[in-house]
């Protein structure tokens, strides 16, 4: 379970995250939905204690990320938008390296890697060097690498960005599978259809603030919109901004 309370982060004069509060329960998929620049990536970076928490608290399975960053990193697997692989290592070696760093014993990590090979259809690429991999192939390796220690909490930052249909499908299935295993799954996206199709719980975030949280139905009811796209636009407050922008340019 991820519990975020009153999270804030300031970069210079810009409040990237400005009082975000939400809960992502175990055994469920939570979508972090928001336009570009809403503060999704900054929130996720703080979850992974990659940057200092400005103020507020994050707890992952009860572990306070601000106080015990290394323990928090133990229980979660996070995929941020930086997905660089080592081009001279094979896909398997890339994944294995993270398993070794995390101290997963080799028989267990090899079994996990083989499971990912099957789930994400990586048979052809697993023993090839990652140099020249397509974006989808790189993404598959990056996901397997981030989850090789079988974390109880999985956080994926815009995982379907730039992926083809088949890879996206495989990824969706993986996300559902992780939920079925009882893990906490959270992913961010700016694509409504994807969030609607997968998520049990949606957190809409805009301009560093949570503007709504709930199930798809609850959000529809709250916004009075007929579909999620309209609900998103209304709840994220994008609609109000558009005319004013037009006025400025007029």
């Amino acid at each position: 379970m991820i519990e975020v309370k009153e999270l804030r982060k300031q970069f210079g004069a810009v409040a990237a995250v400005d009082g975000v509060t939400f809960t992502a329960p175990s055994g469920a998929i939570t979508g972090l939905l928001g336009p570009n620049g809403a503060g999704k990536t900054t929130t996720i970076r703080m979850l992974g204690s990659l940057i200092d928490i400005g103020s507020g608290t994050i707890k992952i399975d009860g572990v306070d990320v601000g106080r015990e960053p290394e323990n928090a990193r133990l229980v979660c697997g996070i995929l941020t938008d930086a997905r660089g692989l080592y081009p001279r290592l094979t896909a398997r070696e890339n994944i294995r390296y993270y398993a070794q760093i995390r101290g997963v014993d080799s028989s267990r990590s090899e079994a996990t890697i083989n499971r990912f090979v099957e789930w994400l259809d990586m048979k052809e690429i697993i023993n090839r060097r990652t140099e020249g991999f397509s974006q989808g192939e790189r993404m598959k390796v990056a996901i397997a690498r981030a989850l090789v220690h079988e974390p109880s909490t999985v956080v994926l930052d815009e995982p379907t960005n730039g992926l083809d249909v088949m890879t996206t499908r495989a990824l969706r299935q993986l996300i559902k599978r992780l939920r079925a295993e009882g893990r906490t799954v959270m992913f961010s996206s700016h694509i409504m259809q994807e969030v609607a199709a997968l998520c049990d719980e949606i957190v809409i975030i805009a301009r560093g603030k949570v503007s709504a949280q709930g199930t798809t139905d609850a959000l529809l009811a709250q916004s009075g919109a007929e579909n999620l796209e309209d609900a998103f636009v209304r709840l994220a407050g994008i609609e109000e901004e558009a005319p004013s922008a037009e006025e400025t340019f007029a």
Binding site: R73, A82, G84, R145, A146
Partner: peptide
Amino acid sequence: RGSLEPILMNPIS
């Protein structure tokens, strides 16, 4: 390469 950020996400000192 973008591989520094992911490696620092591990519980590695």
